[in-house]
Design a protein around this nucleic acid. Structure first.
Length: 939
RNA sequence: GCCUCAGUGGCGGAAUCGGUAGACGCACAGGACUUAAAAUCCUGCGUGAGUUAAAUCACGUGUCGGUUCAAGUCCGACCUGAGGCACCA
């Protein structure tokens, strides 16, 4: 047992006294490496064992890179504006600054104990006026460029928190913090026009080394959809409205239109007799919170407003409805409804009995040249009493099918179906239920040697009684009539047409897939994509609409009605015009208040009477009293680390060009769309301004997985007895053990449960290492060839694994090496030093100690050169190969580098056990994979 | 409902390109040391059959099917779990 307390205190002091990890950012002589952690939020709760996961990971890479000769920037700071400090201020009437600074102090101590090699001279915090001066400055630039602006828009208002929230701060209609209800409210708000950057943010994702899931989440959040705007004239009114659709190919199937209740045209085009209905509906839907809207989305609601729109492609009059399933904030707030081919429209049309026109036909079978066309039916008959369906079993001549047949000339689908059912099965007491979507089917009839292309209509009947007449069959019709249940149909009916028809019969849903167009004049016969292209061409030529790209991403609401945030550096004059403060007036510092709580829904800064009013350019003006959201300060902090004390610019350009982008960024997946999207946008903007030379700030991103308590449940308030404090572990087992254990638990990205015995195992390994160096007396200046291969393998694997953040497998390799050394009597000094260097990034304290005390070096190990390996030592003179017979391992052979494949085969066949399997059998195939196996197939 | 990821011993987890499944650690069992215990060191450890012991054989990576000489790995369908999005037209 080594004394971890003594060793760790000693080296912690050494690193601080010597500023071991101070970065000289101006030293451009070495390659750079920028390793970044998501900076913590200094809440009152201390870090638990889950937080350091990411910190230790970046620290390991930073330490290795330093030893590999990189100039490493590895900073930390605090995201120190935000809600808990605000609530503390409201409760106590004290300035949140003191609370924040105290929390920062606690966390700083915790982080230092973890042995993280940060350059503490670069620490920044977002609430520091010297820092937020530049947050305000960037905002000001965006304001001047029209990117930050005030607009009137529906916002997420949280009454409980007394503030508006951004979309990513609202989860399931409730506030992310606190879980309070959020309602939609029209307000004048500061926003950042992030949709202007939608395309850049989308295309920029392609080259990033990020988790695919995060990139996908950002793509979905941006929500690009390519479609068309189509203009609809309102009959009897001199008005037009525009809809956005991604399916303009289905325009001939539009049977009604829907406007969102908030649409500006609604009041103008509602007919007199419908005014009251509309007024009531609008009132109801405006009262719903977002939560209620989503909860109530099971059942569609809406009202007809009395007027009609003209379908621009065929002049047909179609009714206009309003419904809250159409959102005011997406697209144009109006849609054309095609119930046959959109599930929401289908549901709505079914409920309100609106016409459904099929314009797209699913295609089954394979089309063939020279087909004969037929119209036909497939009839499904359901016997409710026995829960069975009527089928015809053709056995080897087609298997199980439903009743089917060809329509005679001028015969309706219904008549045809009734006739066929009667002829083939005799049943004639039926109730017609519905006709389903038509299917375009292609098949080859063996008995007639002909290819057919049929348009098949599906029909569903209920059996009313068992009444039967005699069947009327042709000679070649040889089958059994059988009633079977649903499961049997699903497993036994193989014919695509019949199975699809059955699904259409029993499921009430729209036909969403691709197919060929029908009932669509110039689109008939085209598939979905071709029809979309042709329709857009048609709309544009006739001035009825145009191609349009739409994004789901909306303006980033950039003001909070709170105190503890960056003041927005804008003033408003009495005439309503606004102006940004001059650069010399930045930072605009938060004033102290007597009361940190806003009154009557006003921001707290409204209470700062002296601060609020200023004279600018000789005119009276009032300051903006909202503050910026938490995501403001974190959108550019990684730039400030590079040059944290610069008072003249946000950071020196030469330094920015050298150090950006961040080479490795590790943080939780909860920031996938919020912070990570905003930071990318600010970085892209600063690139456009020429302040940065790169567009994307984070080259490589990794999310650390969550650490669960020993009970397998998330560490947190709910199970306080399962929360692990890293400082407790550090005290009992040492920080080195803590770091080693956390990294050994499993892949960085995975979710992992804590295990106390696992920690003890990690400590045992460090004790074993310590004993190896201090008690075993094996370290020697002589060589030991027995360790050559394993040492070089270890250097290779550990180096590669650290690079790929595969810490668990790297540590496993270090253990394998130590086990091997224990079996030897001589531990060559060169290998002893190399091993300590390999272990140093994970367990820095014990390795510094051994480097100093046992290996006798005066300096820190932190800048010693990283071990290299000798490729030639990795190779064996002989190696083992597996012999497989019919895919099963039946023996092994030992071969040398110059054994030929023929010799390998011969050796393989010579094994006794192999002989048992091949003697008297015919060898069909022999496969030799050098260095792996010999595979023999016998019969 | 849609998107993304995952599912391997008693447990955490390993396994480049398809090529000996279960590395390493924990737990457990046996042994050595010890008056004894702890610590340490050594050995064993997927399940079943087989044997004094081996050899050997069968089964085995969520389920079912497919491709292949060969599948944890590739393909198809499904089940379960995690995260995200959700009336986005």
């Amino acid at each position: 047992m080594y004394d971890h307390i003594e060793i760790e205190n000693k080296w912690k002091k050494y690193w601080e006294d010597n500023k071991t990890f101070k970065t000289d950012v101006w030293d451009f002589s070495k390659p750079k490496f920028y390793a970044l952690d998501m900076f913590p939020y200094p809440s009152g709760v201390a870090l638990h064992a889950g937080h350091p996961f990411g910190y230790v990971a970046t620290d390991i890479v930073s330490r290795m890179k330093r030893m590999q000769g990189y100039n490493v920037l590895h900073p930390i700071g605090f995201d120190s504006f935000g809600l808990p400090a605000e609530q503390f201020a409201i409760k106590t009437g004290k300035h949140p600054n003191g609370f924040t600074e105290a929390n920062m102090k606690t966390m700083r101590l915790q982080l230092k104990t973890l042995g993280l090699s940060y350059d503490w001279d670069r620490e920044i915090s977002t609430h520091d006026p010297k820092y937020y001066k530049w947050t305000q400055w960037i905002f000001k630039k965006m304001y001047e460029d029209g990117l930050a602006k005030q607009i009137n828009m529906p916002v997420n208002w949280c009454e409980e928190l007394g503030t508006v929230l951004a979309n990513d701060e609202v989860i399931d209609g409730k506030s992310e913090r606190g879980g309070y209800p959020v309602v939609r409210k029209n307000m004048k708000q500061w926003v950042i026009d992030i949709p202007k950057y939608a395309e850049k943010l989308l295309s920029g994702l392609n080259d990033l080394d990020w988790p695919e899931s995060t990139k996908e989440m950002q793509r979905n959040w941006i929500g690009k959809s390519i479609g068309a705007l189509v203009d609809f004239k309102v009959d009897n009114f001199n008005e037009t409205f525009t809809v956005f659709t991604t399916r303009c190919d289905t325009l001939f199937g539009a049977t009604y239109c829907v406007l969102s209740p908030e649409h500006e045209l609604v009041d103008k085009i509602t007919t007199e007799d419908k005014k009251e209905d509309v007024r009531k509906y609008k009132e109801e839907s405006s009262k719903k919170t977002d939560l209620e809207r989503t909860e109530l989305n099971k059942e569609k609601t809406g009202v007809f407003i009395g007027s009609y729109a003209i379908n621009p492609v065929n002049g047909k009059k179609i009714p206009i409805w309003i419904s809250d399933y159409v959102l005011a904030s997406y697209g144009t707030g109006a849609i054309m409804a095609v119930p046959a081919h959109d599930s929401r429209d289908y549901e709505f049309a079914k409920k309100f009995n609106i016409e459904i026109i099929q314009v797209l036909e699913e295609v089954t079978g394979t089309p063939h040249e020279g087909e004969t066309h037929k119209d036909s039916i497939v009839a499904v008959v359901y016997d409710k009493k026995n829960d069975k369906y009527l089928t015809i079993n053709w056995k080897e001549n087609g298997g199980r099918l439903f009743v089917g047949g060809t329509r005679k000339e001028n015969e309706s689908a219904l008549d045809c179906a009734l006739r066929e059912i009667k002829e083939e099965t005799g049943y004639d007491d039926l109730e017609f239920v519905k006709e389903t979507f038509k299917i375009n089917h292609h098949y080859y009839a063996y008995n007639k040697d002909k290819y057919f292309e049929i348009e098949s209509t599906g029909l569903l009947f209920n059996l009313k009684s068992d009444h039967k007449v005699a069947q009327n069959l042709d000679d070649d019709e040889n089958f059994i009539v059988e009633w079977v249940n649903k499961d049997q149909i699903e497993s036994e009916v193989k014919d695509e047409l019949h199975l699809k028809t059955f699904n259409y019969c029993i499921n009430e849903e729209a036909m969403i897939g691709d197919g060929i167009h029908i009932n669509s004049e110039f689109l008939n016969g085209l598939n979905k994509q071709d029809a979309i292209d042709k329709m857009i061409e048609f709309l544009e030529k006739n001035n009825l609409g145009k191609k349009k790209i739409n994004y789901r991403l909306r303006e980033w609401i950039f003001a909070r009605q709170r105190y503890w945030g960056e003041p927005i550096p804008i003033v408003e004059f009495e005439d309503g015009t606004t102006k940004a403060l001059d650069d010399k007036d930045l930072p605009l510092v938060l004033p102290e208040l007597d009361d940190y709580k806003g009154k009557n829904g006003n921001p707290p800064l409204e209470n700062a009477e002296d601060w609020k009013y200023v004279t600018i350019d000789g005119k009276k003006a009032k300051r903006e009293t909202s503050t910026m959201p938490g995501s403001a300060g974190s959108s550019w902090y990684f730039l400030r680390y590079i040059d944290p004390n610069n008072d003249n610019e946000l950071a020196n350009k030469q330094l920015l060009d050298y150090w950006m982008p961040v080479d490795l960024y590790v943080g939780g997946p909860e920031h996938a769309v919020g912070h990570l999207l905003y930071a990318r946008m600010w970085n892209n903007y600063l690139y456009d301004k020429g302040i940065l030379s790169i567009k994307e700030p984070f080259k490589r991103l990794v999310h650390q997985g969550m650490l669960l308590g020993a009970n397998g449940v998330k560490m947190g308030k709910r199970f306080p007895e399962y929360v692990i404090n890293p400082n407790d572990i550090a005290k009992k087992f040492g920080t080195d053990t803590f770091r080693l254990y956390e990294m050994f638990m499993g892949p960085l990205e995975a979710e992992k449960p804590w295990s106390d015995s696992g920690v003890e195992g990690a400590r045992k390994f460090l004790d074993r290492v310590y004993r190896l160096y201090t008690q075993e007396n094996k370290i020697s200046d002589s060589e030991n060839p027995n360790l050559d291969k394993i040492y070089n393998q270890t250097v290779k694997k550990v180096t590669e694994d650290y690079e790929n953040l595969g810490f668990n497998t790297a540590i496993s390799q270090l253990m394998i090496f130590v086990n091997a050394v224990y079996k030897e009597d001589i531990f060559p000094r060169k290998y002893a030093e190399g091993f300590i260097k390999l272990l140093n990034p994970v367990s820095p304290y014990i390795t510094e100690e051994l480097w100093n005390k046992v290996l006798g070096y005066d300096n820190t190990i932190s800048y010693e050169s990283w071990p290299t390996y000798d490729e030639s030592k990795l190779k064996d003179e002989t190696y083992q190969m597996v012999v497989q017979i019919n895919g099963k391992v039946r023996g092994k052979i030992e071969v040398s580098m110059d054994t030929t494949e023929e010799e390998m085969k011969k050796l393989a066949k010579n094994i006794d056990n192999v002989k048992n399997y091949i003697d008297g059998k015919e060898i069909i195939k022999e496969v030799v994979v050098p260095k792996k196996l010999v595979s023999i197939v016998v019969k």
